[in-house]
Design a protein around this nucleic acid. Structure first.
Lengths: 211, 211
DNA sequence: GCGGTTCCGTGATATATGTCACACGGGCGA
DNA sequence: TCGCCCGTGTGACATATATCACGGAACCGC
């Protein structure tokens, strides 16, 4: 049986200095969430920053009309830049975070994020790399929405999805894809069918197998 | 005649502690750019971070096919978060920064950005607020592209534009708007005409007057 | 004033995407 | 086993946006 601190140690060794790992073990709150569980809902206040140990989390942006747009995925050793910055003004969150699969993470209180920056060089590096990655992700998202047609977007969507879950069989409904891409189910069904005809994937109920 | 350090002092007094202002005066490189001038082009390397003293800068994202998408504007006391993070891996920039009008700014070498974070609390605060603002901007951009129809997008575009230049008369061509919104000139012309009929604005050559 | 250039207005048409309506089939609980 | 719900496939149609093809108006240099 693996306990929390072993998991943390294994995940961070090599990235963080020992004193920092110890601090994380002491302060961080370990948590496991199941697939589909919400970590953040719009309107809630973010008081701590999650670091993903294993699994993956998807970050979405809902709009007033009930649509959503996928911003990016978080997986191993990623963290959510929005939650680092989201708090200073004490504004509530404007995003949604949902576990894509069973996910283990550790929460660090925001004050500590700040405090550690000057105490641990590797932490500062981590925080900045996190920002940079999330910026790159957001730019990629904008690229995709602004420049690509739906069929291309669907392809990049499927690619990212398989990357983030590290498998070729997606357990997902057309409806859900449509929601994440802010379009309608029928359109996705048609495009998927098209991709199946071309031999890019195989469809069945609740399942898409990439070839 | 105003000299550089007076400008800098006036801009930063109240936001930064005196020691930091002095440091900025000593290290930062003051520069003025004219309207239309490029600060960053895709492919160039970013070795220093600009802080805008007055004027405004627009940050765009070009794609391979020659289209562009507007990411956000920078104006008084803003800074570009991408340039803070853009350097760690020594990757070239993937964005474009263009002066919207005559703009005064001061460049801080990236190493100093990093160093000052632990030395000056107000600087750390500044850096984090910058990140947060840019994140919010990017999310607003995604909202607009993902959820709004072109006519609404055009409205929000015009609003932001007037905000950033602080005036109601925009010196701009339909072609340029189209490029920034990644669509075509005819479409923008039609939509603008529509807005004129509704009495929202008045059109003339190279000029849009918001009412 | 003249010729060229840039910007703008607008019809006609093409294409992509969104919406509606409905049928089919599989799973699953009563 | 029956009925029902959910996910899917698909035609027909509505709408939004892109593209093409012009013509005309404003401006600029000569």
């Amino acid at each position: 049986m693996i306990n929390d601190s072993q998991v943390v140690n294994a995940a961070f060794r090599g990235s963080f200095e020992p004193a920092l790992i110890e601090e994380i073990n002491r302060i961080g709150i370990y948590q496991e969430v199941e697939e589909g569980e919400y970590l953040i809902r719009p309107g809630s206040y973010i008081r701590s920053v999650p670091i993903i140990l294993s699994g993956s989390i998807k970050i979405m942006r809902p709009d007033a009309a009930g649509n959503e747009a996928l911003l990016y995925y978080l997986s191993g050793l990623d963290s959510c830049a929005i939650s680092m910055t989201g708090t200073p003004d004490n504004k509530p969150s404007e995003i949604t975070a949902i576990a894509e699969e069973k996910t283990r993470l550790i929460f660090i209180p925001v004050e500590k994020v700040d405090e550690w920056i000057c105490r641990f060089p590797t932490w500062k590096q981590f925080v900045f790399r996190t920002y940079q990655r999330r910026f790159d992700d957001m730019i990629a998202t904008i690229d995709s929405i602004a420049f690509q047609k739906l069929d291309e977007r669907l392809l990049t969507y499927l690619k990212k999805k398989t990357q983030s879950c590290q498998c070729t069989v997606l357990q997902i409904t057309h409806e859900e894809i449509a929601r994440e891409m802010a379009t309608s189910r029928e359109v996705i069904s048609r495009l998927l069918k098209q991709l199946e005809r071309v031999g890019y994937l195989r469809l069945s109920r609740n399942k898409i197998e990439i070839l």
